[in-house]
């Protein structure tokens, strides 16, 4: 089995973090997850600055980002990732409670790779997280010279 790439989970709600982690754990993906609590931390992580100045390793294989977070929300984070050439190839999955059409449209417009509404039923949630994690972290290993992100394609 290929070495698993890291998953970056940006989520401010502790309950959601726990549920997501346990869902990922069911599929043996949990130990590869880095949790950050808002957009600013996620951005720090990516740029290896702030509390992540000393981290090692490459970019995460996939970023799961909540839309509504303090300090910097998911849309702003997504915007920055897509306009920075060091990160714009990283797949980003928007993971949120919101079903609002405007959120969906805007997320895709900025260049989200997927938009997943967190289902109320936990087993559905597990299924969603599982397929996300497997697809982006294991199956869909991006080649280094992969084409540009959808927003600029």
């Amino acid at each position: 089995m290929a070495a698993l790439k890291r998953i970056l989970l940006a989520e401010d709600n502790a309950n959601d973090i726990e549920l997501t982690l346990s869902a990922l754990a069911e599929h043996n993906l949990a130990n590869e997850v880095v949790v950050v609590r808002d957009g600013v931390e996620a951005w720090d992580f990516l740029r290896k600055s702030g509390s992540f100045a000393k981290r090692d390793g490459a970019n995460p294989a996939v970023i799961l980002a909540d839309l509504k977070m303090p300090r910097m929300d998911g849309l702003e984070l997504l915007k920055r990732i897509r306009t920075d050439e060091r990160f714009h190839q990283i797949p980003v999955v928007v993971l949120t409670s919101s079903r609002e059409e405007s959120d969906v449209i805007e997320s895709y417009a900025i260049g989200a790779n997927a938009y997943v509404v967190k289902p109320v039923a936990f087993h559905e949630f597990i299924e969603a997280v599982k397929s996300l994690g497997l697809f982006w972290a294991v199956l869909n290993e991006p080649p280094p010279d992969r084409g540009r992100a959808p927003v600029t394609a």
């Binding site: 309950n15 959601d16 726990e18 949120t96 967190k118 109320v120 936990f122």
Partner: peptide, 22 residues
């Protein structure tokens, strides 16, 4: 209001179901 309902009200409901499962 509906945005906040959509986002904030659904989360705890989802958590209840999730933690019951856990």
């Amino acid at each position: 209001f509906s945005y906040s309902v959509s986002h904030d009200l659904r989360a705890p409901v989802r958590h209840i179901d999730g933690f019951v499962d856990l």
